[in-house]
């Protein structure tokens, strides 16, 4: 397809390209990796710099670090109870990695690594494989009994078991696509409205006035994206907790897709 057929280049922002010149090209470092590293450094910086005073009455930065810690800890604790201790660092890393990725992506000119299905699917597969390993270790072969819901008549088994297996296998897909699609949709909308502004700007004097409207929409969208970015990180983390609870805690709950 020719370039002029897409007057709105909504997807160009997701193109990966090598950074750091020839070094980056030979090491295959993409700009998404730079953002990932920035996110990791910011997370660690928040915790290390924030907690350095070790104050009993926290300052602003320390309060932020503690707020983040306690928020994630309560989330994990609610789901996993006394087993929270083992999985908390993983969920914390996951939550912060996604949250900072979403928010860094909102900085104009930067890049959203959570808008790449490869990244989110990898994260979701890590969660899935971890859940699988934990359930096999904790529940052993009893784990496979979950694919036939308790109390269901045996003659429905040929119907129910495939459905349960498919729903179990679709978890990483829904988990990753949810995050990926949210991020892509948000950033595409940004781009589309920004393109409207440019289009209207080229329509003479009146167009330049009307062109303010898409900018205003983008400002509102930005606020919504701040909400969505936090919400999707929260949803990813809480679903991780729910899956891990199903795996690590014996009782079988109603599966959340």
């Amino acid at each position: 397809m020719a370039a002029e057929k897409h007057s709105i280049d909504a997807l160009g922002q997701f193109v990966l390209y090598p950074v750091f010149g020839n070094v980056g090209r030979s090491l295959h470092i993409a700009q998404s990796n730079v953002l990932m590293a920035i996110a990791a450094i910011l997370i660690l910086g928040l915790l290390y710099l924030g907690m350095r005073p070790r104050a009993v009455v926290p300052g602003r930065l320390q309060a932020a670090a503690e707020l983040l810690y306690e928020f994630v800890y309560n989330m994990v604790d609610d789901q996993l109870g006394r087993k929270a201790h083992a999985y908390f660092p993983f969920v914390f890393a996951l939550f912060c990695f996604i949250l900072f990725g979403n928010y860094l992506g909102l900085i104009p000119g930067s890049f959203t690594y959570t808008s790449h299905i490869a990244v989110t699917l990898t994260l979701a597969l890590v969660v899935f494989v971890l859940g699988l390993i934990v359930s096999l270790r904790v529940q052993g072969l009893h784990f496979f009994a979950h694919f036939l819901p308790e109390g269901s008549p045996i003659f429905l088994a040929p119907l129910l078991v495939p459905i349960e297996i498919i729903s179990y296998l679709s978890r990483p897909i829904s988990l990753s696509i949810r995050l990926f699609a949210n991020m892509v949709a948000g950033h595409v909308l940004f781009e589309v409205f920004a393109a409207f502004t440019i289009m209207l700007g080229s329509l003479g004097v009146i167009g330049k006035f009307i062109a303010v409207a898409p900018v205003a929409v983008n400002v509102a969208m930005f606020a919504l994206e701040l909400l969505v970015g936090a919400l999707q990180a929260y949803v990813f983390a809480i679903l991780t907790c729910i899956y891990l609870r199903e795996a690590a805690v014996e009782t079988h709950d109603e599966a959340l897709v």
Partner: peptide
């Protein structure tokens, strides 16, 4: 909020 996010995801699919 969880319900909203889960529901919204279907639209995003």
């Amino acid at each position: 909020m969880l319900g909203f996010a889960l529901t919204e995801a279907t639209g995003l699919f």
